[in-house]
């Protein structure tokens, strides 16, 4: 009996593995697991390592889509091999994966750091090994890279906080909800928010907390704030998914919806239109900058010089302006400032 069950488990496991392999091949999965170390052929083509968060949320997925489009379609004639690694949101795994990538004779490393500090050593090691390092989407506490591409997160923080304060006429109570504590991305935004709030002495920031990009966590935290401060006039939020949590918390409490700042994630804008909410502005989340990072990476490998830092100045858009940029029928996971050409965009955002 035991043997039968054992064999059943083995057969089912094998079957599952075959199905998963077939599915991942069909869907061009975002993670390529290399089993063979290949000799690099000097044919002028490049071997590239990509290390990022992985498809843990729509922002990270959009980032991946831009990278995949750039290397698989736009620059496919220049690329010999791309090793994609995703660490599922764990900085320690990301360090191990980059160490692994460095054994694969890569020419360039495109990395979206999950921690300002944890990746310093391995990024410096890559640079010492003459690998061109391009840092994307979040800062890191070293300058041993070739270029850093990002939204200007500090300015983003300033601009969103300033907008909220202005809407409240420079007087009232606000709450600040950032993404992940410790990530360079969130901390830079928060520094901008803090500096902007100093310009409005009559605005009281009741508290600063982290929604972890989760609507559940955000809703729970905003409910806690509302328990003591039902007169909140604005919520400074760095992300649409967290914005949904804010809207939910206010709606459940039966309170007037506050002024809010979000990003260009389609899911929020769909929801806002459905409920007729418009007291918010959107600042681009910056996932589209992955395409710019790939352009710079190719320039670097072609021997061209690039700036040490490319920071996108943030712009404020209304909900209507964002919706006008979104092609009809795009799913919630789409981001308005997409840089994937229209003829390819549906291959990614299905």
């Amino acid at each position: 009996m035991k043997k039968t069950i054992l064999w059943s488990v083995i057969v089912i496991t094998s079957f599952l593995m075959i199905v998963m392999f077939a599915l991942s091949s069909c869907k061009e999965s975002e993670v390529v697991v290399e089993t063979v170390t290949e000799e690099k052929i000097d044919d002028g083509k490049f071997v590239i390592g990509v290390s990022n968060e992985g498809p843990t949320n729509d922002w990270a997925k959009s980032l991946n889509y831009h990278i995949q489009y750039s290397f698989d379609i736009k620059y496919k004639d220049l690329i010999e091999k791309v090793y994609y690694m995703s660490c599922e949101g764990d900085p320690s795994i990301q360090v191990d994966q980059i160490e692994n990538l460095l054994t694969k004779d890569i020419d360039a490393l495109l990395v979206s750091p999950l921690s300002e500090s944890a990746l310093v050593t391995v990024i410096e090691k890559a640079t010492d090994m003459k690998v061109s390092v391009i840092v994307l989407g979040s800062s890191v506490l070293t300058d041993k890279y070739v270029t850093y591409v990002d939204r200007d997160n500090y300015e983003t923080g300033k601009i969103i906080a300033t907008w909220i304060c202005e809407q409240l006429g420079g007087k009232g109570k606000v709450v600040t909800i950032m993404g992940e504590p410790g990530s360079g991305y969130s901390e830079d935004v928060l520094r901008g928010v803090s500096d902007a709030l100093k310009e409005f002495p009559d605005i009281i920031n009741i508290g600063t907390d982290y929604g972890e990009y989760s609507p559940v966590v955000t809703k729970q935290k905003v409910e806690a704030f509302l328990a003591s401060y039902p007169d909140l006039g604005g919520v400074i939020v760095d992300g649409g998914m967290m914005g949904m949590g804010v809207i939910e918390a206010f709606t459940d409490a039966g309170l007037e919806l506050p002024y809010l700042t979000v990003d260009d994630w389609n899911g929020f804008h769909i929801m806002a239109e459905e409920i007729g909410y418009s007291k918010y502005v959107s600042v681009p989340g910056g996932s589209e900058l992955a395409a710019d990072a790939c352009d710079l990476l190719i320039k670097i490998l072609n021997g061209e010089s690039v700036p040490k830092e490319v920071l996108l100045a943030p712009s404020i858009m209304s909900g209507d302006e964002v919706r006008a940029m979104i092609p009809e029928g795009m799913p919630e996971s789409y981001w308005a400032l997409c840089k994937i050409p229209a003829e390819h965009v549906k291959e990614y955002y299905k």
Binding site: P55, D252, P331
Partner: peptide, 24 residues
């Protein structure tokens, strides 16, 4: 892993009012 492969981690979509009734 199976969920991520099959769904591509796309949002699963809206939930029915009945579930809202239970949760909210």
């Amino acid at each position: 892993g199976i969920r991520m492969t099959i769904t591509g981690i796309k949002p699963a979509g809206t939930i029915p009012e009945m579930i809202r009734y239970i949760g909210r």
